[in-house]
Amino acid sequence: MNYPKITYTGWRKGKDKTAFVLVCLFSLITMFPLFFILWDVVSKGYKNFNLRLFTEVTPSSMDAMLARMNGEPIPGGILNGITGTVLIVGMAIIFSVFLGLFIGIYLADNRGKRFAGVVSYLTDLLQGMPSIVIGIITYAWIVKPLSGYSALAGSVALTIMMLPMIVRSTEETLKMLPVAYKEAGLALGSSYTNVVFRILIPSGFGGIFTGILLAVSRVMGETAPLMITALGASVVNWKVMEPTSAIPLLIWDFYNDPNLVELIWSSSLLLLIVIFLLNWIAKIVARKWKV
């Protein structure tokens, strides 16, 4: 039989080269937005990125206007947003980690069961739910019945957003652990609960913790669901049942206030730094805690 002759001609070489260049080019293009965002945020935000940003609450529009007319820096910071974000996200972490761990454990251990299939499918749906819808649902569930905007309502909205990510990361991490750990634990006469909490969860800590950090960094910048749940506040608030501010809420406020617009950039810079830090820590933890 005659096989066709395969040659590596100039035409084919050229095609090969072109494809390679295009791939590199497009890869570079995907990086441009990030570079520009970083450049913009850093170059415009560093001016107001000072101690004041962390120690003072948002100034009133009037004070800011007076300061601006006198050529002084903006007389305030975003302390109320920072504490609000810590409070709301902190509560959301507690709720979602608690719930997410249990759901993840259940899913990892009951593959193929009907109910587990339903839960798994609903988790996927929840992951795709628009954040504003989650906000509105939370408004109807929490804000309305309790007749008031609150940090609690905000944290419930964020919990619903974090939950699917934590469930998935817990489930996937536990599924990847060798069945030998579970069997060895049970063979020592342990209860199932002790095997899960003293062996499996610690062994999968890296993966689970990474999932939690990534979920936190995702919801940290959420604005829409907080606008209709936590509302915002111009003072530092640690009360769970009171309206509370958050960094992304303040950014939205600054956008609507020409006297405070300068603070957008330093607030964004702070948010970006925290999110980058979280991602960086997540990477390190994932690498260090590999079992």
Binding site: Y181, G189, P202, S203
Partner: peptide, 19 residues
């Protein structure tokens, strides 16, 4: 659980608890 405390088991793959 009581049975397993009376009968120790060693597996094919060494599996000390990693943490």
């Amino acid at each position: 659980m009581e049975v397993r405390r009376m009968a120790g088991m060693v597996f094919q793959q060494p599996n000390p608890f990693p943490t």
